[in-house]
Design a protein around this nucleic acid. Sequence first.
DNA 1: TAGATTGTTAATCGATTAACAATC
DNA 2: TAGATTGTTAATCGATTAACAATC
Lengths: 212, 212
Amino acid sequence: MRYYKISDNTIRRLPRYLRTLEKLREQGETRISSYGLGQLLGIGSSRIRQDLSHFGTFGVQGYGYSVTALRDAISKVLGMDHKFSAVLVGCGNIGKALLCNFDFAACGINLMTGFDVSSEVVGTTHNGIEIKSMEELDCYLTENHIDLAVLCVPKEVAVSTADILTRNGIKAIWNFTNIDIIEPGSQILVENVHFSDSLLALSYYLSETIMD
Amino acid sequence: MRYYKISDNTIRRLPRYLRTLEKLREQGETRISSYGLGQLLGIGSSRIRQDLSHFGTFGVQGYGYSVTALRDAISKVLGMDHKFSAVLVGCGNIGKALLCNFDFAACGINLMTGFDVSSEVVGTTHNGIEIKSMEELDCYLTENHIDLAVLCVPKEVAVSTADILTRNGIKAIWNFTNIDIIEPGSQILVENVHFSDSLLALSYYLSETIMD
DNA sequence: TAGATTGTTAATCGATTAACAATC
DNA sequence: TAGATTGTTAATCGATTAACAATC
């Protein structure tokens, strides 16, 4: 158990390391140095070694890292072996896109079921995931141990839906509604996927290049 | 014209400021202090003043900021008045979700048209946006001035599609394929929306809370 | 062995926070 | 005027980068 906080910057680089290692493995590479990995990622080698040092020693002097061993170590650090259970709430376009295209299992997440208000989609199955009625949500959460909720409902019901989730012991929300469902005092974890923030940052850099 | 680089951290906070200001305006607030804005965002007031100072002076001593004036100033900084033109390439689930739900105009982006390979969707219109055949993409880009492309094609064709875009003068790619379409030397701007990176970071923090 | 590369400590750099004169 | 709050300069803090002994 560690007694200091690891920086968010470090945590957010780990999935990128993982992605690059997986790519290397697919290409048949078995070893990689921190320098080599840094080249692929466009960052310095010592940043990578510094990042990894928070979690253990994974390398071998004079050799580097085993691609698969480092990949496995990072995926464990990221909690991918916990097999957290999840539900997807709101199966509109974005929700359905995640259901059909996003590989939850590859992230170590066990997606149990979806929920929606529309009678048109309730009862249907997408990618092996059944969609239940939103009315069943409250009850379902009390009867099943669910760690995480993927929130894809319309803006208007985002806060009220988040309330239902928190009341029922959900510990983390992956938030695709473009509003901040923060409750500063709350213990619940919220990871926001704000599309517009991302696009606006790109817009800024684009307008910068035009000014030159 | 500035002669120093503004940090990415600052840029990525601007859309959050904008979002909060818009919310305040909807609530009928006309003025806000950096302290008040900081409270709403969970950050310090001097960070906000420091951030804003890179772009001009928008406040009034002893009063604070006009909500609408600051909102307008930030949206201009983010290039939202440029009305950049965009195309959406790949109209599967994620592409369609963006077409139907995402408010490009609210980000100052002029979405012109979509492209897809499937004859089932080619010719259809979503949210006023027509979907053309992917075969027309190359030609369309040479005949029209397009600044930005939203890339939502399947992984397998991500790199080859990105090549078409760069060859035809696209300056920025908003990348929803979960792979890195980097070309380190390239001048093109790429903003990645890596769902899995986001989910894995959440997974890390979730597993941390469990260990306590 | 010699060369390579780690993990870690020290140095540097940049970002955040605090302080404060200016002034509405 | 007195109080509030800005924009900016200085101080602090943390993150990145460089250096290097250890060792495969």
